[in-house]
Amino acid sequence: MNITQLLFWLLTVIAIGSALMIVTSKNPVYSVLGLIVTFFAISGHYILMNAQFLAIVNIIVYAGAIMVLFLFVIMLMNLSRATETLKNKWLQIVGAIAGSCLFLVLIAALKNTEIKKNLVEMGTGDIGLVKSLGRELFTTFVVPFEISSVLFLSAMIGAVVIGKKE
């Protein structure tokens, strides 16, 4: 087992463990911390696949901006000790069964495919670098890139209008 495989399994265990922490923890702050750890583990996977631009963007956008927003909202509502009162045991059991059925069905669908023997390129290849992604982004995908700026503007106006006091 070489170092890449070791890092892959380590990051996988961290990602799945902290994802379980999001779902199971009672305190929402712990859920946010679990989500941050999951995002860092996924960024580690991106670095293992040499997708450096996406790894950095993932850390900046998700672990930086979005998680600060989540923590800020939780602080604002003082939810850190809020418990979920209307708890339905049956609903939880049924939800867990439904999720595991979805997982099993998708795994079973994967089992007979041809694609599963293909290899993923680890650590080499320069398509994930800023140079090649930026060239593609500003030539082929320049119209969606500009439209996304309009999307951000509308999201900003929408957040201000919704959050405004009457």
Binding site: T12, A98, S100, L110, V120
Partner: peptide
């Protein structure tokens, strides 16, 4: 790394997300 490891990991995370959406009320 074979692709099926990555597919299984992504499916695992997705299923955990689905279970969270279905079970949590917050």
């Amino acid at each position: 790394m074979p692709i099926n490891y990555y597919i299984t990991l992504a499916l695992c995370l997705f299923a955990i997300g689905v279970v969270g959406v279905l079970t949590r009320r917050n």
